[in-house]
Design a protein around this nucleic acid. Structure first.
Lengths: 349, 349
DNA sequence: ATGAAAGCGCTAACAA
DNA sequence: TTGTTAGCGCTTTCAT
């Protein structure tokens, strides 16, 4: 009878004693397992309620499931992530699964630790949103537990993939700008310093597609990219860099709304009006983009559907599916007031 | 020799065998515990590296610590939360503690489940950001494990509190508007339907302080409040309600930036210019507020310091402190272009 | 300084 | 249908 520092929690043994049954019986009731009479079930449930019993997750983890889904998020600032989580929660509602979130943080090392933390805590399934660790690491995780990767365009036999068709999304933006009459269209991208597998990363696809569409329209010479990061700071720096060129671009396609917001600041500081002087488009169709003072043209990729699908795939894997699945969402363009035909004197180009 | 579904993880016994020592020795090395020779430490560390061993969190939880800090967040959309988390992570960096986040979700019931999930997973410490469960629940948690509550203005012997001096913050805003010449200043607040303990909630303090300052300036009759929620939707509805009044307010103090953004949309729809027709101020000084197209006057409460302090207090409690501490941050006003003197014809009031 | 062994709360064989 | 019991991987007395 050790005196625990804090009041001892109710255990399955307490419930069993209180109900006058075995711990096995209680365990079975908890898991809705086969082989308990209605009477037994009622007695046990009553005892659970009376004692206010809740199972110790760690003890369960030692033998079975934790009823936990782990989610890796790169950060908390990207307004696209809540959409994903909303879809996930909706899908998981009523299943008894709890979601815990860890943050990847600044570098790949921090992200590795965050993923490890989830594995070490024995989550039953893991959703990795826009991970930047090497593909081998993703497969290691996928080999150990049900895993869904959201973002990167790389399929694997070891995990499911949910992704936005970033190629279509980028095409929509660049063609939209071209159809408005722009030629000097620049791009703000995200450079991942850490890793290989860049070809599969969504930021690479957006950038490469931008280049391709430009070429397809004979705008090879107008290609201008600033590779910073998908963040406000990155967008600010990228825009400053692009605006310093001569002649300056008449349109900027930022690979993420967040970067577009930073670009907006840079444009203002440079005394340039949007869209009168420079058109601006983003990606993600965040709520801020929809604010009428911002009214940013953007690409909508339905994060709710993506998150919900990720949840469904995770549950399927937990239930035993071993084959690999890829789910692709087709994005749509949401034109707003931040994009318009280029100013007249542009013809100097 | 049960064949686990997936490849069995390396355990402490494997490490012990590999190093030719006891599991006790390995455990001690892991925890930097007293009573291991340098030679032993080196051998064990080598074995750990060679085998790529990482402790099972759940197994540790059964006997000791989980090295986990649990954070409860109401949602992922409030741009103030990342600031808090940044401070927390910085404080925890290098301590070996991992942060896991759970989301409170829509109602108090969901929040209760989220908190339970953290308790059931035996986190070593818990940070509850703007919780809405009853105070008794907070104290229950505080009685079981090191706890810090961020937001509510209620001290307790059972947990530490980190809070913004919302009274000062609200005063700053209302006095700022009054000094600009406004009289018909309205407020958009957050009504919690679920709970008691409203008097201590930050939203109540902001609303009550608004009323008090109005009265102190003889503006009793101009008090107008729309109690919705601190969200974009809430701000939108609140503003529509306030703008429907006649005469309409010349200034709106939204209790949160998020609500101010919603109000912005409503103002635009009503064809009203900010600040020419209506001045608008928020609270939280989020990044979006700083965007030059928005340029929202707001109250800055240094979430980084709040989060960092919460982390420090948590570590102190884990190390044994039992006395209760309250830490209050004094906010500052950040005036921007969204607030200006009222339009001239206002004198009809 | 080192190790043997008990036990944390639960689940799953296996018996009854 | 119900109960007994052996662990899961770790920490922690308590011997040595």
């Amino acid at each position: 009878m050790t005196t625990r520092e804090r009041r001892r929690r109710v255990t399955i043994a307490d419930v069993a004693r209180h109900a006058g049954v075995s711990t096995t019986a209680v365990s079975k009731v908890l898991r809705n397992a086969y082989g308990v009479s209605a009477a037994m079930r009622d007695r046990v449930k009553a005892a659970i309620d009376e004692l206010g019993y809740r199972p110790h997750a760690s003890a369960r983890a030692m033998r079975g499931r934790t009823y936990t889904i782990g989610v890796l998020l790169p950060d908390l600032r990207n307004p696209f992530f809540p959409e994903i989580l909303d879809g996930l929660y909706e899908q998981l509602d009523g299943t008894g699964y709890q979601v815990i979130i860890v943050l990847g943080g600044r570098d790949a090392k921090a992200e590795t630790r965050a993923i490890d933390a989830l594995v070490d805590r024995q989550v039953d399934g893991m959703l990795m949103v826009a991970p930047r660790v090497p593909r081998t690491r993703l497969e290691e995780v996928g080999g150990q537990l049900p895993t869904v990767v959201l973002g990167p365009h790389e399929k694997s036999a070891l995990y499911d993939a949910v992704l936005d068709d970033d190629e279509i999304g980028a095409e929509l933006v660049v063609r939209h700008l071209i159809s408005l009459g722009h030629r000097r269209i620049a791009h703000i991208g995200h450079r991942e310093n850490a890793g290989r597998r860049t070809a599969a990363m969504l930021q690479t696809i957006r950038a490469v597609t931008y280049e391709r569409v430009m070429r397809e329209h004979g705008l090879d010479d107008e290609i201008a990219m600033a590779m910073t990061t998908y963040s406000e700071e990155g967008g600010y720096e990228g825009a400053r860099e692009l605006l310093a060129r001569s002649p300056r671009p008449t349109a900027i396609f930022a690979g993420a709304d967040l970067a577009a917001f930073g670009a907006l600041t840079a444009l203002h500081e440079a005394g340039l009006a949007v869209p009168a002087d420079v058109s601006l488009a983003g990606y993600d169709n965040t709520r801020t983009a929809a604010l009428s003072d911002i009214s940013l043209t953007s690409v909508d990729q339905d994060g709710g559907v993506m998150g919900g699908t990720a949840g469904r795939l995770l549950l399927e894997r937990i239930e035993g599916r071993t084959s690999s699945v890829t789910f692709s969402v087709t994005p749509t363009l949401v034109p707003r007031r931040s994009t318009a035909p280029p100013p007249a004197e542009t013809r100097t180009a």
